[in-house]
Design a protein around this nucleic acid. Structure first.
Lengths: 344, 344
DNA sequence: CTGAAAGCGCTTACAG
DNA sequence: CTGAAAGCGCTTACAG
């Protein structure tokens, strides 16, 4: 493997000049630059990331911290971030933040060892929730950091305005004439950190209020973000003769898909008898013809990378800010006007 | 941030001794080791990966090359590999191999620049298909490499015995008494590299032959690996009055889920009127009560990491080998005996 | 615009 | 068992 030394000899210049020429520094004459580039190409030379990092203090590598591997959402954010960072010459090193309950040792070691190795210049953290001690360790690193949708005090965070998103989804239903709108999602217990379910319910209630609709506790069903969870909760909701919703706002697209499948199993037609809307823009949404509020996760990753790259530029002072992520109502076949008998 | 120098001073030894003590080298006295460990803990010292790599030639970092980000399968393999590698002290740097058609520049740059940076000691490549030129560049790197399920000449590869897996799935159906078994998957055109569809069809036909069943071309439907693809192909198959299968073997679990949904839409009950089996062990399989041959992707990642770690040990000579990955028939509710009228 | 030289923070023969 | 010293392959003030 060629080293900078080899390139310097072939080009007939010093290693300092090779370094400057290849880094695109402006203080190199065009002729010299050409000689160096030719030599580098001939030898197939690419600077060793390791040596370059040690000498410059910059690794050109970003740590990507995420709590889940193998899900559509995180993978999509990762894809968007990876593209933007790769285009800027950065690699991504993965830090899988395992669950404290299930893998306490792995999680501990992540903070005590892996994150401390100075392998990266900065971090992107997606939907990450940390204890105070963990957050303190992160801050001790003194590296730029951008969060996506997680509560990270003191960190620039891009997040969805969950209240607004839920309100938009619910308003879509009220504007179609629905007045009995079920909320499938909901919170169980009081999780101070994970406020997403509460925010989405607040948006739901705000939209109802705006349409002059009294909230009805019989229309609330607790569900998680999975198809299974949405299926079970919706079966409860639709099976209860006192509830009779004409529409359902589900907290996620997978929850909404579960709701659609539950309706089918009960002989309830979507959207003729029941409208269903979700939130996400999940890849499965198209197949199920699901109306949704798309949060564009790939784009979220790109925006996070962009914000981080801005912080990484020398001139920029890192002031933690909160940025609202874009979203978009996508109307598909799963929502329609309420059935005629309900409109009477 | 503490350096090895700081630890050495606090412990009252040389930096060489600190390095040896923390690396667990046996040539350090217990007392000295204790002093060093105490000092390191007090200062929160963790060796810089960058400096350590440059000095030792080992990065303790593995490159993970994959063609798809955001899918359940790749994410699961990544999870398994990441756990095993992290437990051995390794980080993972991601290399997303973009499509040649859609992102030729990104792909080119991956081989010309990112992979050449010597950031990693070795590679894991999942379902990766390379041109000869790309493969040559990879081999030029002279780094250990393990493939999972992709055709990589000259590389140790773990893969599923696709013929055997498909034969097992089909035999499950014949053993239940099915004789008219549809194959939803199939190949279109002749892709020399991507042999998986052909292998699975061979297994299907072998199992039919073993049961003394004549293959019927009307029972073949071309579909990709998606729910949508399985849905459309199955609708064609079930809609054709000449085909009348009592069971379907789908090339993947998502294809099989599409098949189940297509059957439902046509009023065909699963498993009463139609049995369906897939291959994968997909997370959605449980919800749809899908019988499948589970290929345990998380375990695949773990096995790949394990094989790579073995090659990374100094004593081990790297001889490319092919290893069969484990799989397991998981019988759920989607398969049953054929309907009575068919058994007459 | 270019080069000689120091230095980044470690590891590891070598010597004792 | 331990230390002094060289060296890994770059980058970057400093000087010219």
């Amino acid at each position: 493997m060629a080293t900078i030394q080899g390139v310097a000899e072939l080009a007939g210049v010093s290693t300092a000049t090779v370094s400057r020429a290849l880094a695109g520094k402006s203080t190199v004459s065009a002729a010299t630059r050409q000689k160096v580039e030719d030599a580098a190409r001939e030898l197939g030379y690419v600077a060793s990331a390791t040596a370059s990092s040690l000498a410059s203090g910059r690794t050109r590598n970003v740590g990507f911290v995420l709590p889940v591997l193998g899900s559509w959402y995180y993978g999509s954010v990762l894809k968007g971030a990876n593209r933007a960072l790769a285009d800027a010459g950065y690699d991504i090193t993965l830090y899988h933040l395992e669950d404290t309950d299930r893998h306490p040792e792995r999680r501990k070691r992540l903070f005590a060892e892996f994150l401390q190795r100075k392998r990266v210049d900065a971090f992107i953290a997606v939907s990450v929730e940390l204890t105070d001690a963990e957050l303190a360790r992160i801050h001790d690193l003194r590296k730029p950091m951008v969060g996506v949708g997680g509560p990270l005090p003191g960190v620039t965070t891009l997040s969805l305005d969950d209240v607004a998103v839920a309100s938009l989804a619910t308003s879509h239903l009220t504007s179609l004439g629905h007045r009995r709108i079920g909320f499938v999602g909901g919170e169980e217990g009081d999780n101070l950190d994970f406020q997403l379910p509460r925010h989405r319910r607040e948006g739901y209630e705000a939209a109802l209020a705006e349409a002059g609709i009294e909230p009805d506790p019989r229309l609330l069903a607790v569900a998680d973000f999975t198809i299974q969870g949405g299926y079970e909760a919706t079966k409860q909701l639709l099976g209860d003769p006192r509830a009779h919703p004409t529409a359902i706002f589900a907290i996620s697209d997978e929850t909404a898909i579960g709701a659609i499948l539950a309706a089918r199993d009960l002989g309830i037609r979507v959207p003729d008898d029941l409208s269903v809307i979700g939130i996400d823009g999940h890849e499965l949404g198209e197949f199920f013809e699901l109306t949704t509020v798309d949060q564009h996760p790939v784009e979220q990753g790109r925006l996070a990378a962009q914000a981080l790259l801005a912080e990484l530029r020398p001139d920029k002072a890192a002031t933690p800010i909160a940025v609202d992520l874009p979203y978009e109502l996508k109307v598909r076949r799963s929502t329609a006007v309420p059935p005629a008998r309900q409109r009477d």
